[in-house]
């Protein structure tokens, strides 16, 4: 059933990575992604792969879940590789008709492919090991400093977590409305683009009305339970750093400086592009 789909693809298991404070994981992902853009040689990438592999091992999430995220970008990945492979000027290694593959092109294509794959796998690791709830908590607290710039951090986090709760409900409702209209002969599948767009009206009107109604009900229920914004609120599950979180931060910084330093060394034969 539709209600069973998991959002944000969280993988339930017990591991050190799962237990880390979401703020550490957010900061870690950010650092990891940024460093990927600094590497000038393949030693940097090697270090990043080693780092990622270790974290994946620790997270106990089967590798096939990481690859799942790759499927959606496969097309993009291929285009990038082909473009770089054939369109980079330099010393030709192999010529096919008018297109030639250059030495520079090869290394650039490999580097781009590595960068994209590492990016996707690394960031999906965060959503695989952190519940959506925990993630919003982490963002609320981790980005709390933005409040001085009048950014409504609490409100945004609250909105995200309410959205996460209601998306499955609304999906199920969409299914019900679709069936109710199909029973009246509505056709959502065939026809040209304009006809199809028109066919959506009987689906969207009831859906919007219902969503507004739910929003209204929910606002009333929240007020009835004394909700009045983030001021003076306490937390049932406050985020608290533990020893492992400080160690994780330390490792992260070592990784950041280490990989950037190594990754920017000028090493002949191992240079990118």
């Amino acid at each position: 059933m539709i209600r069973d789909i998991t959002l944000g693809q969280y993988y339930q298991t017990e591991s050190l990575i799962h237990r880390l404070d979401p703020r550490v994981k957010l900061a870690g992902t950010l650092i990891y992604v940024i460093t990927l853009f600094f590497y000038k040689n393949f030693v940097g990438y090697a270090l990043a792969i080693f780092f990622l592999a270790t974290v994946i091992r620790l997270s106990k999430v089967p590798f096939k879940f990481m690859v799942r995220g790759m499927k959606s970008i496969l097309f993009l990945l291929m285009i990038t590789v082909l473009f770089n492979l054939f369109l980079t000027p330099g010393t030709p290694v192999f010529t096919l008709w008018k297109l030639s593959i250059t030495k520079e092109g090869t290394s650039l294509a490999v580097s781009m492919a590595l960068r994209l794959s590492l990016l996707v796998i690394g960031s999906s690791l965060m959503t695989l090991t952190t519940t959506p709830n925990n993630l919003t908590d982490g963002m609320e607290k981790g980005l709390g400093f933005l409040k001085i710039f009048k950014v409504p951090v609490h409100e945004v986090a609250m909105m995200m977590s309410i959205a996460l709760r209601f998306i499955p409900i609304l999906l199920e409702e969409t299914d019900k409305i679709m069936k109710a209209q199909m029973a009246r002969g509505a056709d959502f599948e065939s026809g040209k683009l304009i006809a199809r767009a028109k066919a959506m009206v009987p689906l969207l009107v009831p859906l919007f009305i219902s969503a507004f109604r739910r929003a209204n009900d929910l606002a009333m229920a929240m007020e009835a339970r004394c909700y009045r914004g983030g001021e003076g609120r306490t937390k049932m599950k406050p985020l608290k750093y533990r020893g492992r979180d400080y160690i994780a931060y330390l490792i992260l910084f070592l990784f950041m400086f280490g990989s950037i330093w190594l990754g920017r060394l000028t090493l002949p034969m191992l240079m990118v592009g």
Binding site: E173, K179, A180, Q181, V201
Partner: peptide
């Protein structure tokens, strides 16, 4: 003909 539980799901 099938009439579903909530009329709100079909009136538009």
């Amino acid at each position: 003909g099938l009439v579903f539980q909530y009329p709100e799901h079909q009136l538009f």
